[in-house]
């Protein structure tokens, strides 16, 4: 009986550890994907001048699922994105509010400016996001530790229980 309970405790701790690590990983992926989108837009708005929808759809497949979902919803609400972005800001819990605010602000302006102003906005957002990316990278390291801690803690509990 103790063996089973110990095993379950080990699995639970390991699961929590991995879950935390995964959340940090997803957060970093989301921010990195956003930065990739910024770089992509910077090049294409300057040269190709394709419409926003075409540009985003062309690039969409290369992003991770969280950011891809975000973009899909954004494109669905492209003509009136304010409401969608307000709702997203309130409901999302993947990234911190400060970073989400930056993303929201940028997405609200996206497509509403001429190419010079749009490029300026991309460059500025990219610069602001640099420290957020660094922070997310640091947090991802914490995430690895959480995973390790989960396994170690689970093992310790398993040993104590049996």
């Amino acid at each position: 009986m103790n063996f089973i309970i110990g095993g379950l405790m080990f699995l639970l701790c390991a699961f929590i550890g991995f879950k935390i690590a995964n959340n940090y990983k997803r957060k970093l992926q989301f921010i990195t994907d956003f930065k990739t989108l910024l770089d992509y837009l910077e090049t294409n708005i300057l040269y190709l001048q394709d419409t926003l929808e075409k540009l985003i759809r062309d690039k969409m497949e290369s992003f991770h699922s969280d950011f891809k979902n975000f973009l899909e919803n954004y494109l669905q609400n492209l003509q009136n994105s304010t409401e969608f972005l307000e709702k997203w800001l309130k409901e999302q819990n993947l990234i911190d509010t400060e970073t989400a605010e930056i993303i929201k602000k940028f997405m609200l302006e996206l497509g509403r400016q001429d190419s010079t102003a749009q490029l300026q906005s991309i460059i500025q957002t990219n610069e602001i996001l640099a420290k957020h990316t660094e922070r997310a990278q640091g947090e991802q390291k914490k995430g690895y530790m959480s995973a390790r801690l989960g396994i170690m803690g689970g093992l310790a509990l398993f040993i104590i229980i049996i």
């Binding site: 394709d50 419409t51 926003l52 929808e53 492209l78 003509q79 400016q113 001429d114 190419s115 749009q118």
Partner: peptide, 8 residues
């Protein structure tokens, strides 16, 4: 088409 820059 929600892209002012493309029609500037």
């Amino acid at each position: 088409e929600c892209s002012i820059y493309a029609h500037n």
